[in-house]
Amino acid sequence: MSDIGASAEYRELRPRAGPGERARRFVKYRALLLMLVPGFIFLIIFNYIPMYGAILAFKEFKIMGGIANSPWVGMKYFDKAFHDPHFYVVLKNTLIISFYKLLFGFPVPILFAILLNELPGRRFKRWVQTISYLPHFISWIVLSGIFITIFSLEGPINLLLKAMDRLPIIFMADEHYFRSILVGTSIYQSFGWGSIIYLAAIAGIDPQLHEAAIIDGAGRFKRMIYITLPMLVPVISIMLILSMGSILDAGFDQIFNMYNAQVMDVADIIDTYVYRIGLINANYSYSTAVGLFKSVVALILVLGVNRIVKAIGGNEHTLW
């Protein structure tokens, strides 16, 4: 059997709309529908019931009144955010940093997984993989200390500049470099961990495909491009769509531990800003409003990218 043949067969089986047809499918899938029940009960209890809390964004939270008895204030907190000039600065920074992280950070784990898979020697491969995800376990408090050292005036990068007769640069306080440092260090921390899903997908590729290609005389590079990569496309596209859901989370822990006053204009993001404001004056309504705003943006992006993927690759790789 081959996978391609299976999906062609599958497509022929696609149902045609119609009440009789739907009823038939109900009967056919009754067991599967029952399987959905426990999961959806959890969703309703632990995800949907608490969602009423989102109305706090439109209310003035009174601690003794609870959510229900707090007075409505309409769009007050949204107005507050949208009339705050700094909000646009942090929104812009959030989008830029997040976009760069996606643009440069998204392909790295894929590339790493494919290259790692090409390595002969299973034992060595395992070692590399295990070590590559170690930085994921080190918190940003620790990592930021290390990076501040690396990019400091006495650090190795400036020593290199000195050796090349260039002037030293205080990278961590330089608006031109800071975002690149953020993106680079974030990739460093997460590429190994991020590659796990791709390695799993590669493991799922039928070895017969490779064997057949070898017989046809395909080289390694060709097999990489024509077998491994295409087989990864479904995972890649779904990871891409799902990553849109967190596009407004540009990395609080990382930025909070690395930024300083000099790079505030390029590094301050929504989360760090809301955190600092909250330190002075805890305000559930405001942070709920900002959270709701982030959710709406994420929803639009997920739907948008899903549509784009659909337009390019057809129904196969989309969310639904």
Binding site: S144, S152, N260, Q262
Partner: peptide
């Protein structure tokens, strides 16, 4: 210290 403004408490 030419990079005093980068310092965190630990540095």
């Amino acid at each position: 210290d030419p990079e005093f403004f980068v310092n965190k408490d630990t540095n």
